Amino acid sequence: MYFYARKRVSSPASRGVEGGYYDWRRRQPAETRRESANRVLLGQIREVFEASDQTYGSPRVWRQLQKNGVCCGENRVARLMQKAGLRAAVPDRAWPRTTVPDPRLLAFENVLERDFAAEAPDMKWAADITYIPTEEGWLYLSVVLDLSSRRVVGWAMKPTLGRALATDALEMALRQRSPDEGLIHHSDRGCQYASEDQREILTDHCMLGSMSRLGNCLDNAPVESFLSTLKTEHVRRRRYQTRSEAKRDLFQYIEVFYNRKRLHSALGYVSPMEFETQHHPSRETSLAAEG
């Protein structure tokens, strides 16, 4: 018995069905509306992240997006950042301290007593010193922080750790702010802040000196936090060849980014200058007039 295979003849209808099936197999899955929205949002997240010099985590990125008019959830931002590998800078090493008390110099009492709240600018200032590594050697940075707005109101940078470092920063703050009598100036017990030059400036401007307890950095927590942020977000990610290069870069961070742009969690996620403008506009106007 012989069997003959019948040649299969497909109809035009069946060929159309088969062609559509194979066309579907060849096509890539279409992007969903949600995926498209996430792609656009991730682009906006990257812009904010890069504008912060890669220092913002998801809470600050989300806050900045809200200010930019982008409607999204904080958890969604965090999820997209994690998936894209966008991580904020974190501390990875300890930094040496610069507080060197001089037993021959008188120290101020701790008048501030960790009461860091201030109803208005230029009522309470906090000061501290740190140092920045460069290929030429250490660059010492002194800052004066207003505790109301967390704004850096005075700073100085020098290659040596002398008393002029602290006095120059304080004098800069006084030139810029012209505070009323009775301002509390708080610092650690370093010899730069206990010097006769420092005391003379405080007396001449009717300021009240205050100092942390020996070895207790929490007594000066806000300015310690600022210096930690500076090192974590900025300094440790750079390699300065010269002190001049470091000075230019630190100026950009303090005056251009931190004071004017960086969202501060203690201020409701606005920058120090925004905070002063929003809450004390008369103060900002008077400063602009004096300048």
Rank of each mutant, 00 (worst) to 15 (best):
residue 114 R to Y: 04
residue 98 T to P: 04
residue 69 G to D: 07
residue 114 R to I: 03
residue 107 A to Y: 02
residue 74 E to H: 08
residue 53 D to C: 10
residue 56 Y to F: 00
residue 51 A to Q: 10
residue 112 L to E: 08
residue 121 P to A: 01
residue 122 D to L: 05
residue 90 V to F: 05
residue 60 R to Q: 09
residue 54 Q to W: 09
residue 55 T to Y: 06
residue 127 A to D: 08
residue 125 W to R: 11
residue 126 A to C: 15
residue 63 R to E: 11
residue 103 P to A: 09
residue 58 S to Y: 03
residue 114 R to H: 08
residue 133 P to I: 00
residue 100 V to R: 13
residue 126 A to Q: 14
residue 107 A to P: 01
residue 54 Q to A: 13
residue 76 R to W: 05
residue 135 E to V: 05
residue 106 L to C: 12
residue 59 P to F: 01
residue 63 R to A: 10
residue 66 Q to K: 10
residue 84 A to Y: 09
residue 56 Y to N: 00
residue 70 V to G: 09
residue 91 P to T: 05
residue 90 V to Q: 15
residue 73 G to I: 06
residue 64 Q to K: 12
residue 56 Y to S: 00
residue 92 D to Q: 12
residue 70 V to H: 09
residue 105 L to R: 12
residue 74 E to W: 03
residue 90 V to D: 07
residue 122 D to Y: 04
residue 137 G to H: 05
residue 137 G to A: 03
residue 119 E to I: 10
residue 64 Q to M: 10
residue 59 P to N: 03
residue 104 R to Q: 15
residue 67 K to D: 14
residue 108 F to Y: 03
residue 92 D to E: 14
residue 52 S to P: 07
residue 88 A to W: 04
residue 48 V to L: 06
residue 93 R to M: 10
residue 105 L to W: 06
residue 135 E to N: 08
residue 65 L to E: 06
residue 65 L to Y: 05
residue 118 A to R: 09
residue 68 N to M: 14
residue 121 P to T: 01
residue 76 R to E: 12
residue 84 A to F: 08
residue 96 P to N: 15
residue 82 Q to H: 15
residue 59 P to Y: 02
residue 115 D to N: 15
residue 62 W to P: 00
residue 116 F to Y: 11
residue 89 A to P: 02
residue 70 V to Y: 07
residue 129 I to A: 05
residue 75 N to D: 13
residue 121 P to M: 01
residue 49 F to M: 02
residue 87 R to K: 15
residue 119 E to L: 13
residue 62 W to Y: 02
residue 112 L to F: 07
residue 130 T to F: 03
residue 130 T to Q: 08
residue 55 T to D: 05
residue 59 P to I: 00
residue 70 V to Q: 09
residue 91 P to D: 04
residue 57 G to Y: 00
residue 71 C to K: 15
residue 54 Q to I: 07
